[in-house]
């Protein structure tokens, strides 16, 4: 990389895309799987869910839904820690946060491919 250039625009674009996905899609899934189903307000059969997650389009949807916002988290969490005074650890924090998101992406692919 030439001097003065950083990776920040790249990570920022993933942050932004993940932020959009999180804003539009996460609330309804959190409501459904975190509250409505456990509390018995609605029920979805396992057979139906299994049939759904077996479809390639649904797998792609789940990949976007799960993986992209992980980069959104990584970007924000990195700067939370920096803003709390950890400027000296700038580089290790970036590696840790974006690295976790990459690990999450690989794990998501692994789970989705095996179904």
């Amino acid at each position: 990389m030439s001097p003065g250039k950083t990776m920040e625009p790249f990570w920022w674009s993933l942050f932004s895309a993940g932020g959009v996905v999180a804003a539009f899609l996460v609330p309804v899934h959190l409501f459904l799987h975190g509250l409505a189903v456990p509390l018995g307000w609605v029920s979805v059969s396992h057979a139906r869910l299994l049939a759904l997650v077996g479809q390639p389009l649904v797998k792609m949807y789940l990949f976007v839904l799960i993986a992209l916002p992980l980069y959104h988290w990584a970007h924000r969490f990195r700067f939370i820690l920096e803003d709390l005074g950890l400027h000296g650890l700038r580089m290790p924090l970036a590696v840790l946060c974006y690295g976790s998101a990459i690990v999450g992406t690989v794990a998501t692919l692994w789970v989705l491919i095996r179904i």
């Binding site: 799987h33 997650v53 916002p69 992980l70 988290w73 939370i80 999450g104 789970v111 179904i115």
Partner: peptide, 21 residues
């Protein structure tokens, strides 16, 4: 900024749920 932590925790949960399905 902290909202992102809840987003990430839930998505890990969702991934586990998909795995369990």
């Amino acid at each position: 900024e902290v909202t992102s932590v809840f987003v990430a925790i839930f998505l890990v949960e969702l991934l586990v749920l998909v795995h369990k399905i």
